[in-house]
């Protein structure tokens, strides 16, 4: 029988919370970026593509370190925006959210784009000639038709968020009960003597959550599409 300590439970809950918040926060941005990349031709499109996809190719530790430099007390965003607002991100669970969002963002954008690219441009043209403005077209045609991509992107990002380690440990630290997520807790168990069983138990929890999320994805994917 699995027996978890209170800090293990908080690590499990925190992992889920961080992944959910990061996913929900990223959705509108992910959709916007995917929309811009799919339908708009503008200067700097390639630059945007590179920036969005950079976290996919960089080691998460590098992303974490760059984030630390950016949102830390002496960083550009930290000093100019967060400090005047009285927000301190570093070593809080919010920092873990930011790290997870940045690392998972390219996966989300890619999934949404794949969904959007399957939409026939003629459908968008039809909606425009039927009197719908561009925002109306986005809401009533593009969003419903990219719902599979939105679900896939969210699931992928959530799953990636559950496993986020490198960037999180740098910007949020590994504080039990505060910023310690499942991977961080496993890391701590593995690196301390006699923690193997507990590490394995948390691995089991991790696998269970992932499987449940993937099943949910399948189920939603089937349900969201009109089949008649």
């Amino acid at each position: 029988m699995l027996s978890f300590t209170p800090s293990d439970y908080s690590a499990i809950l925190l992992s889920i919370r961080v992944a959910v918040v990061a996913t929900l926060l990223s959705l509108p941005f992910g959709f916007t970026v995917a929309y811009l990349m799919t339908y708009r031709r503008f200067r700097g499109r390639v630059a945007l593509d590179v920036i969005v996809n950079l976290p996919l190719t960089l080691p998460p530790v590098v992303v974490g370190y760059l984030l630390l430099l950016l949102v830390g007390q002496h960083g550009f965003i930290g000093k100019m925006i967060l400090q005047p607002l009285g927000i301190n991100l570093i070593f809080t669970w919010k920092a873990a959210v930011v790290a997870t969002a940045v690392v998972g963002f390219p996966l989300m954008v890619r999934s949404i784009r794949i969904g959007m690219e399957t939409i026939d441009v003629r459908l968008i043209q039809a909606s425009r000639t039927l009197g719908a403005g561009w925002l109306d077209t986005i809401i009533t045609v593009i969003v419903p038709l990219s719902v599979r991509g939105l679900i896939a992107g969210s699931v992928l990002m959530f799953a990636r968020g559950l496993g986020e380690f490198g960037a999180t440990i740098i910007v949020a630290g590994n504080i039990p009960g505060v910023t310690q997520t499942i991977p961080l807790a496993i890391y701590e168990y593995v690196s301390s003597p006699g923690g193997d069983v507990m590490a394995l138990s948390l691995c089991f929890v991790s696998v269970t959550i992932s499987v449940l999320v993937l099943l949910l994805h399948e189920w939603l994917g089937r349900r969201m599409v009109r089949s008649d």
């Binding site: 003629r122 000639t129 039927l130 719908a132 045609v141």
Partner: peptide, 16 residues
């Protein structure tokens, strides 16, 4: 286009 009141029927139906 949405303010032109010009309707269109395409080669294929393109229903939503």
């Amino acid at each position: 286009p949405e303010h032109r009141r010009i309707g269109m029927v395409f080669q294929r139906p393109h229903l939503f």
